[in-house]
Design a protein around this nucleic acid. Sequence first.
DNA 1: TTTTCCTTGTGAACGCGTGCACAAGTTCCG
DNA 2: CGGAACTTGTGCACGCGTTCACAAGGAAAA
Lengths: 232, 232
Amino acid sequence: MSSIGRIPEASVARLPLYLRGLDAFPVGVTATVSSEELATLAGVNAAKVRKDLSYLGTYGTRGVGYDADFLRFEISRALGVANTWPIVVCGMGNLGRALANHSGFSERGFPVVAAIDTDPDKVGVEIDGIPVYAPSALASVVTEHEIAVGIIATPPEAAQGAADRLVDAGVVSIMSFAPIVLTVPNGVDLRAVDLATELQILGFHLHRDRLANGAHATAGREQNLSVGQGPV
Amino acid sequence: MSSIGRIPEASVARLPLYLRGLDAFPVGVTATVSSEELATLAGVNAAKVRKDLSYLGTYGTRGVGYDADFLRFEISRALGVANTWPIVVCGMGNLGRALANHSGFSERGFPVVAAIDTDPDKVGVEIDGIPVYAPSALASVVTEHEIAVGIIATPPEAAQGAADRLVDAGVVSIMSFAPIVLTVPNGVDLRAVDLATELQILGFHLHRDRLANGAHATAGREQNLSVGQGPV
DNA sequence: TTTTCCTTGTGAACGCGTGCACAAGTTCCG
DNA sequence: CGGAACTTGTGCACGCGTTCACAAGGAAAA
Ligand SMILES: NC(=O)c1ccc[n+]([C@@H]2O[C@H](COP(=O)([O-])OP(=O)(O)OC[C@H]3O[C@@H](n4cnc5c(N)ncnc54)[C@H](O)[C@@H]3O)[C@@H](O)[C@H]2O)c1
Ligand SMILES: NC(=O)c1ccc[n+]([C@@H]2O[C@H](COP(=O)([O-])OP(=O)(O)OC[C@H]3O[C@@H](n4cnc5c(N)ncnc54)[C@H](O)[C@@H]3O)[C@@H](O)[C@H]2O)c1
C-alpha cells in the first residue's frame, strides 16, 4: 500500500489550503491543474506546491499537471478527511456560540454536536440547535458521540480546568481560544489560537513602520500570509 | 538611543506571550523573574526566552534574572503597546459580533470602534455598543478614528471586496477570518486565520494516530503549542 | 578578599523549511 | 519520426530558527 513517509509539519499545514483551492474545480469532472495554478489558488508558490505534493506520492504528470479531482481525493485521503470528527465546545459565550453556529466546520467534517457550560441558564437547553450540558455530563457526552476533538472557549481562568476535564473524558485534540498557557499530558494535541497576540504582532509592524516613516522614511513594509502553527 | 537591530519574526511573535506571562507579576512592584520562570509562564523554553530578550537589549542581571516590571516596560516598548490602535470590523455576523464584544482586545490596546455591514437591518444601529455603518461610510470612519487595523468577518465571497475597500480607505493591517486567499497590495500587512484549516491539521494527527494504533500500535503522539504565523 | 553559587548572554552546531534550477518525462505539431 | 514546448519531481544550497553549552558577570557568603 502507499505507505507515505513522514510528511513535514509545514507541508501538512498547507494541505488544507490546497484542498480549499481545489474547490474551484467541480467534483467528478476531469480537469487539469498545474502547480502554478494551484499555487495561486492556495496563496503559496509553485515550488512549495510541488514539493508538498511529492511527499504524498507521484500524482502529477510531467508536461501536463495534476488531475484536479484525483488530487483532491489523494489530499483528502492523506488528511483523513473521509472521517468525521465530532466536536464538543466548552463555553457557550460570545465566541463559543459563534463557533457552534458556524457551518464551515461541519462542511469540513467537524460538526459541533454538543456544548458544555456552567451557566445554569444555558444548561439543558439547545442553543442554535446544539444541546448544552453541564460539565458533569462531559464524559458521557464524549463517549456517546465518540468525540475526539474539543474546543475551549471559556474564560481564561476556567480554561485549564476545562482542558483537564476534556482530557479525562478521552478527548485527544484540543483547540483553545483562551489567552493562557495550557498544560496537557503527552499524547494530547493542543492548538492555542490567541487573537490578541495576533493583533499585537500586527501592532508591532505598525509601530515599526511608524518609527521608520516618522524618522527616516525607510522602505520595507511586508505582506504576510496565512497564520500557521507552532512547534512540536 | 536604543536602536534595536532587526528582531526575527519568530521572536516578535513570542513577545506578546512573554508580556502575557508577566501579568503574573504586579505592576509597579520590583520582582525578579528568571528565564526559566518566564519560559514556564509563556509556554516556551528558557533558551528561547533568553535569546529573544537579547534581541531587545541587555536587560537581565547575570546570576539574578530579570526585573519583571522593567522587562514588561521594555517588551511593551518594543511592541509599541503604548499606542492604541482602533479597529474596524467588517461583517457583524456571528463571528464579527463576538469579536466586537470581546473585551480582551481593548485591554491590549485594540478597541473595536466601528463596524461595517451590508445588512440594512444592522446599518445605523449600535450592536453591543459598536456603531454599524454601511460600506460607503468606511473611508470617513477610518479617517475620523484614524483606524489602521481592520478585521474581516464577512462571508468568503465578500472578503476580497472588503479587503479592497479597507485598503482604499487607508487601512494597512488586516486580520481575516474568511477561508479564502486574499490579495492585498505591498505595504499592507495581512494575517489570515483559518480555523477550519486548524481543525484539519488536528484531524490529520488523529487520522495518523488512528492508523498507527490500528495497525502497528506505534508510539509518537505530539503536543503542539501556540498557533503562530506564516512567512513574509 | 576570595570562594562559591547562580543566571544571563551568546557563539556555534544542527535541523528544518524554502526556493532555485534542471533533468526527466509527456504531449503535440510539423 | 524528430523536435519544440511544457510541467513535474527533486537534488542542492541557503537561510532562519532552535537548542546546546559555556564563558562572562554579578551577588552573597566565608
Ligand atoms: N469573544 C471573542 O471574540 C474572543 C476573541 C479572542 C479570544 N477569546 C477568548 O475566548 C474565551 C471565550 O470568550 P467569550 O467572549 O465567548 O467569553 P464569554 O464570557 O462570553 O463566554 C464564556 C462562557 O464560558 C462559560 N463558562 C465559564 N466557566 C466555564 C467552565 N468551567 N466550563 C464551561 N463553560 C464555562 C460561561 O458560562 C460563558 O457562557 C475567553 O477566554 C476569551 O478570552 C474570545
Ligand atoms: N462563525 C464562526 O465561528 C467562524 C469560524 C471560522 C471562520 N468564520 C468565517 O468568518 C466569516 C464570518 O462568519 P460568520 O459566521 O460571522 O458569518 P455570518 O453570515 O453570520 O455573518 C456575515 C456578516 O457579514 C455581513 N456582510 C456580508 N457582505 C458584507 C460586505 N460586503 N461588507 C460587510 N459586511 C458584509 C453580513 O450582513 C453578515 O452580517 C466567514 O467568512 C466565515 O467563514 C466564521
